Computed example of a mutant assay.
Amino acid sequence: MSKPRVAILISGRGSNMTALLEAAARPGYPATVALVLSNKAEAAGLERANAAGIPTAVVASKGRTRAEFEAELTATLAQNRIEILALAGFMRVLTAEFVAIWTGRMLNIHPSLLPAFPGLDTHARALAAGVRLHGCTVHLVTPGVDEGPIVAQSAVPVLAGDTESTLAARVLEQEHRLYPAALAWLAAGQVRLEGARAVVAANLAAGALANPLPQFAPLRRDEQTP
Rank of each mutant, 00 (worst) to 15 (best):
A57I: 00
V151S: 03
L167Q: 05
I84E: 02
Y29V: 12
A129W: 10
I84G: 01
E147D: 02
V36R: 06
L183Q: 08
V138C: 05
P212I: 14
E83N: 13
V99M: 04
H139K: 01
D146M: 09
L113D: 12
D121L: 15
K3N: 01
K40Y: 13
A196R: 12
A168F: 09
F117V: 09
N39A: 15
E72C: 06
L159H: 13
L37Y: 04
R64C: 00
L94K: 11
A152S: 07
L178R: 05
A155W: 07
E72P: 14
A181Q: 12
V99Y: 02
V151N: 05
T65Q: 03
L77T: 08
L178N: 07
W102Y: 05
A51P: 12
A116C: 09
R177W: 10
L46A: 08
E97H: 07
H123R: 07
A57L: 03
G89W: 00
G161R: 08
L113N: 14
A7R: 12
V200A: 05
A202M: 10
M106C: 09
V151L: 02
S61G: 13
P30M: 05
R105K: 04
R125S: 11
E223S: 07
S165Y: 09
D121P: 15
T103L: 00
V58H: 04
V156K: 02
V158I: 10
V156M: 03
R221L: 15
A124M: 14
P218K: 09
L127H: 01
I82G: 10
A198Y: 02
A25G: 04
A49C: 14
L204G: 13
A124L: 15
S112N: 01
E68W: 12
K3V: 03
C136T: 03
A71Y: 08
L21C: 10
A24L: 11
G28I: 00
Q153C: 02
L127G: 03
S11K: 04
A41F: 08
H176D: 01
C136G: 05
Q153D: 09
L140Q: 06
R125Y: 05
A181D: 11
A49H: 12
A152L: 04
A41V: 12
L37H: 01
A57W: 03
A206I: 07
T65H: 04
G53Y: 00
A124V: 14
E22R: 13
D146P: 07
A187T: 07
E147I: 08
L133M: 12
N16M: 04
G148H: 04
E175Y: 03
L213N: 11
S154L: 15
E194T: 03
H176A: 00
N16E: 10
V59P: 02
R220E: 14
A24N: 10
E42Q: 15
E175A: 05
R221Q: 13
A44I: 13
H176L: 02
V145W: 08
I54R: 14
E164D: 11
L120D: 01
R64P: 06
L120Q: 01
G12P: 06
W185S: 09
L73P: 06
P30W: 01
G130W: 11
F117P: 00
G53S: 10
